[in-house]
Design a protein around this nucleic acid. Structure first.
Lengths: 212, 212
DNA sequence: ACCTGAACACCGTTCAAGT
DNA sequence: ACCTGAACACCGTTCAAGT
């Protein structure tokens, strides 16, 4: 036993390599070393590196699906959608550059899309139009993707280049004659609080449409 | 003359190389060839490839800024913000994988951020709180980024793999027992119409917050 | 000041050969 | 069925040397 690498082990190792070394450090050779095989061994299990990246995306999205399906049915579309948005964000946040890397990549697993069915059923039963319901999901995903890309970029830059995101140095960098931009920078919040507020705004927009 | 490559020429050539060959084809060596110099020549003008990517982002964002500043002052925050969102989307769409590549990358040019000042001034004069106004801009950007990433991914997959985005084949791929997911797929629209609708929803959410 | 030639360490990938 | 050794074409980057 303990012999023979599986596809699943490869993907898991690749995700942890990504988190340790970043996307630049995620090389086929480094991955092989971590799995204690020679690089060409990986090509028995997958066609090329792109397929590995697709599998990594699928694995992350499958975790989202699993978490969503474990959720108790909520009171209404708004709570369902909010829960989805929160899960999506936290799974993205689990991996370095997660939002940028795992968004927009082709979802190789139909189950991830099939998962929408119970929601569409519940929401349309609650009086929401089918097209509107589907729109709502896509809009929420777009918002989360955009939000977390920005969030992770700032987290990361704060690590490598504190000057760019320290408020005082930002003020100097901005130069004179933009008092409101500077003041707004000081008022800015971060993290969960900011996410919940922005999510609430998006959901309010959807509510306005659904109730008319 | 005609001797001596400028930084600006490098960035312009890099953007057109990106559009022709994609991110994988954007190599220092291919870029040098296009500019008719040897690869090391580029390292006199820039520290490394990352700096080139940052400059490309900045160039794109500077085009956005220029277009925004050329805009006649609109009637209210909603029209200002909608115009910004449309400009951002169209500049992203100008370049292959534009949204994914140019979002979240550190903006190397303070002018891009300083541009917010006139809007913050106008909107707060219209009764919007400063923190809300700044939130609104960020939320709009997050939405556009998420929307266009998905939009460009679909455009691109439609080119390389028609089966994934042809409606009939998608139905087969989805499998049985998800009638609503399938029907929603048939109802789905694309392009400007979809963008304007989703943008409207986001702006409605902001309006609900601003008017309370 | 601006560029080239040559070189270095490192990629992803293929393929014949091993077990 | 699963993996290795050796090799190929190609990267980003450095640096001494040229003009």
């Amino acid at each position: 036993m303990a012999k023979g690498i599986t596809r699943e082990q490869i993907v898991t190792a690749a995700l942890s390599l990504l988190d340790d070394k970043g996307l630049d450090g995620l090389t086929v050779r480094a991955l092989a070393a971590r799995l204690e095989v020679r690089p060409p061994a990986l090509y028995w299990h997958m066609r090329n590196k792109q397929e590995l990246l697709d599998e990594m995306s699928t694995a992350v999205m499958r975790r989202v699906t699993t978490a969503v399906l474990a959720l108790p049915p909520a009171d209404g579309w708004r709570e369902d959608l909010a829960a989805y948005a929160r899960i999506l964000r936290s799974e993205f946040l689990l991996h370095r550059d997660g939002a940028r890397i795992f968004s927009g990549t082709r979802i190789a697993d139909p189950d991830v899309v099939r998962m929408k069915e119970p929601w569409l059923a519940r929401w349309t039963a609650q009086g929401v139009g089918l097209a509107d319901a589907d729109d709502a999901i896509d809009l929420a995903v777009a918002f989360v993707v955009g939000f977390v890309i920005e969030e992770q970029e700032q987290q990361q830059s704060a690590g490598t280049d504190p000057s760019r995101y320290s408020i005082d140095q930002r003020d100097a960098w901005l130069g004179p004659d933009v008092p409101l931009v500077k003041e707004a920078g000081h008022l800015r919040d971060h993290g969960d609080q900011r996410f919940e507020r922005h999510l609430g705004i998006v959901l309010d927009g959807l509510a306005a449409r659904f109730d008319s």
